[in-house]
Write a protein that binds this DNA or RNA. Structure first.
Lengths: 336, 336
DNA sequence: CTATACTATGTAAGCGCTTTCAGAAAACGC
DNA sequence: GCGTTTTCTGAAAGCGCTTACATAGTATAG
């Protein structure tokens, strides 16, 4: 820190007004004489003055900051999410404070994000426990949930996507267009809501076409390339027959693709593969991946919008579901 | 905000001490009687007390926050970078404030990140102009530059990677092992330092093997999939002969791959492709991409470490260059 | 047993702002 | 013109903390 930082008092002195007036010019909270305002503004420029965020927060009870809580910052899925959130946040003139929860020690000394340093929180699946969520709800702190229903049926707004119908559509495509009958499904991480809904969509599709469900075709993929690969390798080793894999997400599709390529199975001729999310790399795989387009970036952006509205005291709908869209490429057997 | 937030005074009352003592327990800044400390701590727990960040900042002149300034938050390149930064930041017990500079209006009302809201700044290539950088330097504000030399030979610490030798190594691999002679190079964005160094490495490799430089083999790829693709399509249309492409980064390699595939040129049999960065998707391309491994995540982590050291008043070396490593896969013509 | 040094705690002065409250000056109504 | 509203401005009270500074009690030394 420099010996003496430029404060609002310096600006006030230089322009011959009180600090209250400077504050008014800064925030436009009360009418100020045009000339006075001009003098103040030029003093601000001349002194290179920037208001001290903490002082402002302390006095005004606003942080102008939105907190984002998610399991990890990396991963193909979080990228567009983050981009959307960033866009929304900067559009609304807020700052963004990010915390990841993965592998964070239990004995974390203080709550990283909350009413003490943000105006509101965006909480992604599983990154905050029900207890804390309940506490925040009870004190009326603005929170928006992403891809996750509120616990204990609290009325916390949610932004998510149409998982079930999207999944159903893509599985039905496999059945109807490509005559697949033995379709493997790779589950996401334990308790992952998106995955649960996608699995329901999978079942609905089978039911719709009268295909009986075979539990041995349900594997764990954990939305992880390597785990998905291992699961499929097991399946192949066990000589289980299947003609398609719905990988639950796109990341897993890479693992499946690698496993099948290794085993000499041709995709999509022998086995079709379809994913979910339409991650950035989906169209660079070979063959390009047929998947369900999830508007992840919009989810982020919309969630911020909802949150900002809540912060500003407006009411918002409690559940916003963005629609997904079947995106046909070639890994299902269609011709590009 | 709840009507009355829990403050340090509440904790003090409940445990029968002054707020100064509570503060001491909280920060460990002075010896406190064991029993007193215990009483205070249990009051903190009982009241669910969390210190107010802004008040703390205002009083202590520390924000415990590190600012990250980069052009965009998305993009395969920034992902590992971000991950490294996040890891470093949370390891050091700081918060992370992120700002992107791309497409931000010129009339941004206030300087987004600086001495008023962070303890130090991580600045990625081109995301802060020389004037502001100079100002920050002049007031002694902690800054670490990423992949970018300081302007006006200011002594601002830098963390970057060995671009030149990495590039030289991979081009020499093409020449020596695969007997390529007409190697295309795709430049990154105008003035991008990494790209400039990589281009130098390219030239050194040619020189080392006495291959004369052909300017028509230098194209602009802008580290962008689509631009790279268009450039190569032009080259093909112009019937320029070439037997390899060094794409400058990995993202461009996708575009090149698509262009060549479209044109029916086989990779790597007819034309070898090599990249730089070893992005996550590099080994999922077909053929898997031979590239130069850039330790981007470490760059992020190390940069935070340097920055924290500076914030704590220690001295650091002014330039940290992490080494790169040739990563051979199959797109150069080698057998996996 | 007095001088000296800690140890443990409280008091109070800010940190740099926002925001009431109040008052002066200017504009307006009739 | 005189009362009334409106516009503009300043004084001052905090916001919730940290941190000198001061003080009382308790060891330690000689």
């Amino acid at each position: 820190m420099p010996p003496t930082r430029t404060t609002i008092a310096d600006v006030a002195n230089r322009s011959g007004v009180s600090i209250a007036t400077v504050s008014r010019v800064l925030n436009g909270t009360a009418p100020v004489d045009t000339d006075t305002a001009k003098r103040v503004r030029s003093a601000i420029t001349a002194l290179n003055y920037v208001p001290h965020a903490a002082a402002r927060t302390l006095a005004s009870h606003r942080t102008d900051t939105i907190g984002l809580l998610l399991p990890e910052i990396s991963g193909a899925f979080f990228q567009p999410m983050l981009r959307g959130v960033e866009a929304g946040v900067s559009e609304a003139g807020f700052d963004l404070l990010i915390h990841t929860t993965q592998a964070r020690p239990e004995n974390a000394p203080r709550r990283p994000l909350g009413e003490h340093n943000t105006d509101g929180l965006l909480v992604f699946t599983e990154s905050l426990d029900a207890k804390e969520l309940t506490r925040l709800y009870s004190i009326g702190f603005p929170v928006v949930l992403l891809h996750q229903a509120p616990p204990n049926s609290l009325k916390i707004p949610v932004v998510t996507i149409e998982n079930q119908s999207g999944a159903q559509a893509i599985v039905e495509h496999l059945i109807k267009t490509h005559h697949c009958r033995r379709i493997v499904f790779l589950q996401g991480p334990e308790g992952h809501e998106d995955s649960t809904w996608r699995e329901k969509g999978y079942h609905l599709a089978l039911d719709a076409y009268g295909i009986s469900f075979d539990p041995s075709l349900i594997l764990r993929g954990n939305f992880d390339r390597d785990i998905a690969r291992a699961s499929v390798e097991h399946l192949l080793a066990d000589r289980v027959k299947f003609d398609a894999v719905f990988t639950g997400d796109d990341e897993s599709a890479i693992g499946v693709l690698l496993a099948l390529r290794q085993a000499g199975r041709r995709v999509p001729e022998e086995i079709a593969i379809v994913g979910f999310d339409d991650s950035l790399f989906a169209n660079t795989l070979l063959p390009p991946l047929t998947t369900v387009r999830a508007p992840t970036e919009q989810v982020g952006k919309e969630a911020v919008r909802q949150l900002v509205r809540i912060i500003q005291g407006e009411k918002v709908e409690s559940r916003l579901v963005l629609s997904t869209e079947l995106t046909i490429r070639q890994s299902c057997g269609c011709q590009g």
